[in-house]
Structure formats: C-alpha cells, structure tokens
Design a protein around this nucleic acid. Sequence first.
DNA 1: GTCTATACAAAGATAGAC
DNA 2: GTCTATCTTTGTATAGAC
Lengths: 190, 190
Amino acid sequence: MQQDTRTALLDSAERAVRTRGFDGFSYADLANDVGIRKASIHHHFPTKAALSVALMKRYHEEFSLALARIDATSSSANLRLAAVIEHYKTALHGGKTLCLCVSLSTSLESLPPEVSIQISQFRAMIIEWLAKVFEDGAKQDTIRSVQNPSAEATAMLPLLEGAQLAARAQQDSGIFDAAVQLLKLRLAGP
Amino acid sequence: MQQDTRTALLDSAERAVRTRGFDGFSYADLANDVGIRKASIHHHFPTKAALSVALMKRYHEEFSLALARIDATSSSANLRLAAVIEHYKTALHGGKTLCLCVSLSTSLESLPPEVSIQISQFRAMIIEWLAKVFEDGAKQDTIRSVQNPSAEATAMLPLLEGAQLAARAQQDSGIFDAAVQLLKLRLAGP
DNA sequence: GTCTATACAAAGATAGAC
DNA sequence: GTCTATCTTTGTATAGAC
C-alpha cells in the first residue's frame, strides 16, 4: 500500500510549500511527515534547491495532464474555462494552499535560477492553453465579449492566482468565487 | 539627516518582506542593512512577530493616506481607478517587490494571529474604496459596463495582486500592464 | 539605546556503518 | 536506501555592561 519514498517526499514537500512557503519548512519537517530521518532525504534530493526543481517539474507535468483531461472531457470553450476555474478553486483546499507556482514565486530569491525558468515556462504553457480556449469561445460564441484572446489569457492567469491569494489571506474559499464571478458571467449558460 | 532607528528598521524590514518573504530574512540582515547590531533590534521590536504587526500597521496607514491623496487629486472615477492601478505598478519596483499584504499572506502560518486580522482589515479597506470608485464611475459613466460595483471591487483587488505576482514571477513589469489592460480599456478616455 | 557576549535551537548538509 | 553521529552556520532571543 506504501508508495515509494521519493514520491512521498515530493507530496509532503509540495503540501509544505503551498501552505507555508519554501522558506517555511525544513528537511526535519519532511522527515517527520514521511517517517524517515532527515539525512535520508539527501539521498533522494541532495539539496533543498534540487528538491525545488523536482517539485516544479512534477507540478508542470501534472498540470499539463489536467488541462489535457479538460480538453478531452469538455467540448465547448465555456465548459473548458469553467473547468479550469474549478481546478484552481479545488487546488485551494478551502483556503489552505496556493498554486505551487505562486508560492515559489514569492520566495524566488531563495531558489536556484533554474526554478525561475521553470516558472516562466509553466506560466507560458497555461497562458497558451487559455488563449486557445478564448479563441474557441469567441468563434463558438460560448464566451461573451472576447476582443483579444491572447490579452484575455494574459489577464486571466493573474486573476486566478490573485483569487487564490485573496481566498487564502482570509482562509475563505468564498472569496475565490467572488473574485471570479464577473468572469463566469461571460460564459454561456448550460 | 539620519531618521530614527525604528523607522530605518521598518523600512529595511518592509523591503525584505516584499522581496524575500517573511521567512526569507533575519535580524542579522536588518542589522547589517541599518548599521547596528542585531541585539539592538530587540529593543525596538522584541520579537519578529511584533515586527510583523508593526509592519502591517504602518502599511495600512500609509496605504490609506495614498488613497486619500488620490481622492484629493483625481476628480473623476476613471482617473482614480487609473491612479490606484499606477500605485500598484509603482509598488512593484520593476518586478522586485510585492504588496506587503500579499507577501505576508503567503507566510501566514509563521505569523501571529493578529496579522491575519490586520490583513483582513487592510483588504476590506481597499475593497470598500474600490467599490465607491466603481459606483461613482457607473453614475458618471466614466467607467464602462459596471453592473455591480461591489462585485467589481472584490474582483479587482485579486487582479491587482495577481498582476504583481505574475510580473514578479518573471521580473518583468510589462506583465503587470498586460494583466490590467482589459480593465483599463473600460475607463473613459482623457 | 546600543553594545558584547552568550544561550539554545534549528537549519542544511556530510561521513560512514549497516 | 536508511540509519546514527556529527559538522557548521544561522536563527531568535536574553543578560548585563556602557
């Protein structure tokens, strides 16, 4: 029933980064959480910097998969947009956790330069996906008032991240809903 | 020419929190920056928790003053909204610093409960101000398509914060502009 | 109000046995 | 792959002299 240690460490570290920030947890915390000694962690991730890179790598891969799943299951653009909004809301865990990318962004100075690049790539990937959705939404007329799909996508990612941040700041996921409600009003009804 | 030590410490600490996060700096950093020994800091702020409270208190006061100045100098709602957008952009310092409130929000678990309350109050203050601006903008017709001023205000603060975050993530203040451009298009021209 | 000196705990990391 | 043991540095904080 027990998954491998490396995965357990990544899971624990991701939870920690997203709730307390990269400088807010230690190898001792992970060791305690996973049930091994902290020296053993260095076998999997020689440095905390290496761990941060591994975290972003996995996060990017899993997020890409999630978007692909949305593409596969939601036919029209309005449904795809609603699904990604829901994805960000779920990721909040009721106001406890942020997107990994947001959490790491605030601690950028404690991280290796490689993570900056990973974050840029992660953001570019999402914005590209969103732009495609807005483009489709304009064509299908399932998303209203779309003038410039690329501009919409560039503005929407910060809105989602800001909505998470705001919800977390007050530990209330209702604030996330309030922040995205104007956007949702532009989606064609069911 | 030298301001008092307490103020110098607050300045240094605010810069540190906004660039590296609350867990990303130490009393040693402050001491080095201000030019005293770290033991001396405890005379002004007995604990780091106390420092965080003092930081948020001053930030709230200064932000209120900035909004009052905008009210005093900008007559119409579109100009006031443009001014607060500009305020957030300036606060970025070219992609280096976040709003103190955003930075502290991500480290909430390392902070005394009092700071959570201060952050909520700070956010409520800004949202109230924004709602008034949207309300005026709708009446004057200097901000387009305003259906619900309160909803607009609730969505705009996360957008501004998310725009800062996004710009900082890639150390590029142009991203801030891109994130708020759709909003700006709704303001009446000069 | 600032200093030196120090306490004490926690941090990231390494060496080497099993 | 995990352990014990240890190193070194850094963190927050205190005591007491000046």
